[in-house]
Computed example of a mutant assay.
Amino acid sequence: MLATVLFLGFAILGLGMLSYFTDADILSVPDLGQYPGVVGMIVAIVVFAAVLTPSVQAARPSYPASVPVALAAALGHLAAVWLAAVAGGAGLATATAAIMQLITGGPTVVIALAAVVAAWIGIALRRTRAQKPQWPWEHSGGDE
């Protein structure tokens, strides 16, 4: 769960920084709207969580498992944007132009990097058997 929230946070931060430093919109295809981008990010989050879950449920999760998680999230994002654009009536050419802009403009790389870092952290938390933090009075000892 924490890794999924981290993925969303890293993706928003990375896409915001990309937009700021390149002084360009993330997705600026005429007649497209915001709907495909929103759907794409929701699908990327769901795919990230779905692919990471079996990886972290292993007895000793492996760090290289973060690479397929990142690829799946990035490809899921692209596929969802394309399908949402076509379903929204944008047409095949506009949907394909949107995908090409995401690939060549850098957002797909940002999403993949955010996913690999968040998956790596999720695997690290699982490998170290990290527990949620507790206040001193939450311990079950009776020495208060």
Results as ranks from 00 to 15, higher is better:
Leu2Arg: 14
Ala3Gln: 03
Leu6Lys: 01
Leu8Lys: 00
Gly16Ser: 09
Met17Val: 15
Met17Gln: 08
Met17Pro: 00
Leu18Trp: 07
Tyr20Glu: 12
Thr22Gln: 14
Thr22Val: 01
Ala24Lys: 14
Asp25Met: 08
Ile26Phe: 02
Leu27Phe: 11
Leu27Gly: 03
Ser28Gly: 15
Val29His: 03
Gln34His: 13
Pro36Tyr: 06
Gly37Leu: 04
Val39Asn: 05
Val39Ala: 14
Gly40Gln: 11
Phe48Met: 05
Leu52Phe: 08
Gln57Phe: 05
Arg60Met: 06
Pro61His: 10
Ser62Met: 12
Ala65Ile: 01
Ser66Trp: 00
Pro68His: 03
Pro68Gln: 09
Pro68Gly: 11
Ala73Ser: 14
Ala73Pro: 01
Ala73Phe: 01
Ala74Asn: 01
Leu75Cys: 10
Leu78Glu: 12
Ala85Arg: 05
Ala87Tyr: 13
Leu92Lys: 02
Gln101Met: 15
Ile103Ser: 02
Gly105Phe: 02
Val110Trp: 02
Ala112Arg: 01
Leu113Ser: 05
Ala114Gly: 11
Val116Gln: 07
Val116Met: 14
Ala119Trp: 09
Ala119Gly: 13
Trp120Val: 07
Gly122Asp: 12
Leu125Val: 06
Thr128Pro: 00
Ala130Pro: 01
Gln131Asn: 09
Gln131Phe: 04
Lys132Arg: 13
Glu138Phe: 07
Gly141Pro: 00
Gly141Asp: 15
Asp143Cys: 02
Glu144Val: 07
